[in-house]
Write a protein that binds this DNA or RNA. Structure first.
Lengths: 230, 230
DNA sequence: CGACCATTTGATATGGATCAAGCGATGTGG
DNA sequence: CCACATCGCTTGATCCATATCAAATGGTCG
């Protein structure tokens, strides 16, 4: 069951755990296999648009390298980043007929792109693909629900959650290399970049983390962080 | 395509529109049909638990009458209501192997309950069911994403959004009969019940709505509300 | 009618936004 | 290689939206 999620998790057991997604791409059947076989590799420069909201949702995507942000702008200039997609992640399933969010490369990125109709007709013939389609979407739904919970927390909790999420998704457990700017993080957490800065320095003073430089964060006391996320 | 969503929408065209879900249950194939055929009807009293978080997700559900809240408690007593499910709505798809949210009856409710495995094995044989499974989940994902956007807005915007959502989901267009308390609404919008009250009276003073009683709201000026949601 | 609980309204407190200035890294031209 | 410009990040001061605390009102059920 759930082979595509297994692919994303790099394990044979499915896991719908909160933010537990170690993104290790391996060869497999189901959607992941289909994308590898029939998808085409495309490069996007930093800040290049992958798709815009209101655009037809005609493709599925898989991050090969780099990072992607899914975001939505509101008229008055605010921006909400709904998700960051990292290597191994499949995205674009969230859409109905139109995208609700736009997607941009956070840094230069390689993306596998696959035609939606091709996958859909594959799903009509292949149960594994159909199940993966559902599984991946359900998984994305759980991620979104978790993020919704996060937006109900206070600033220290949000930042701590973010660090733990990023640490989980990174290979090196306690060393985080951020692809994104403070502003990206702020828009992901529904805070301002100033508040992100303040919370990080507060955590550094509490000896929970160190900041070798602003894109690199080392976790020292996960317990403190875990207590904060309550 | 998308027959289950069509069922929920009560129209033959699929709609992934933001919060546009008129819940009219009609006889149909796909998941909705399956639930009607093989599901069992159960009654839940006000505030009765339908399922708890951490519980195994062994069933899908469809609201026949009444209303359901999907919520999550945090240790310190805070509660986030992630969704309200109204008559015609199918829920419980959001889960992986475990529920992330709990579900309770907001008022006395009749619910159709169907075994998950039964639906899954049906989906393995019937493409329509498999597609519905995906479509409904994708639809729930979009609803959750919209709600995530809402949690990034300010109080007046959130309340206005809520009123427009409820008006859309109600039959009588401009007359809303709320099943839930102020506290339920507050926890849905990430605000306090006092703030909900204040925003409603503010809207009443602005002649955008009237409040015949506290569970009944009449919309007079949707334009004002729509401007507020920005 | 009276008790109870939900809702509204009022007064005050506070967390995070905003505005503003300083700092540090990165890159460019002299 | 260094001076300087630029841009993102950090830090500080103040403000404001919403939470919190508290009291008044209203609606429901015995």
């Amino acid at each position: 069951m759930l082979s595509a999620v297994a692919v994303q998790n790099g394990s044979s057991r499915p896991s719908f755990g909160r933010l537990a997604r170690k993104e290790i791409a391996v060869e497999a059947d189901g959607i992941a296999g289909a994308i590898e076989r029939i998808g085409t590799r495309k490069c996007f420069h930093q800040n290049a648009e992958i798709y815009g909201e209101k655009e037809g949702a005609d493709y599925f995507y898989k991050v090969v390298s780099g990072a992607v942000r899914a975001y939505k702008l509101v008229i008055d200039g605010r921006r909400l980043v709904g998700a960051f997609h990292l290597p191994g992640n499949i995205f674009g399933l969230e859409a109905g007929e139109q995208h609700l969010f736009s997607a941009e490369a956070v840094v230069d990125a390689e993306i596998l792109v696959v035609n939606r109709d091709a996958v859909m007709s594959l799903a009509a013939r292949d149960n594994d693909v159909a199940r993966d389609l559902w599984t991946l979407t359900a998984s994305e739904l759980q991620r979104t629900q978790s993020h919704m919970l996060l937006l109900n927390k206070n600033a220290p909790e949000r930042v701590a959650s973010f660090l733990l999420e990023m640490a989980d998704r990174n290979e090196a457990d306690d060393e985080i290399q951020l692809a994104m700017s403070r502003q990206d993080v702020a828009d992901y957490l529904g805070l301002t970049s100033e508040t992100i800065s303040r919370m990080l320095t507060r955590l550094e003073k509490a000896a929970a983390i160190t900041l070798p430089n602003c894109r690199r964060i080392v976790l020292h006391d996960r317990l403190v962080l875990k207590r904060m996320v309550s």
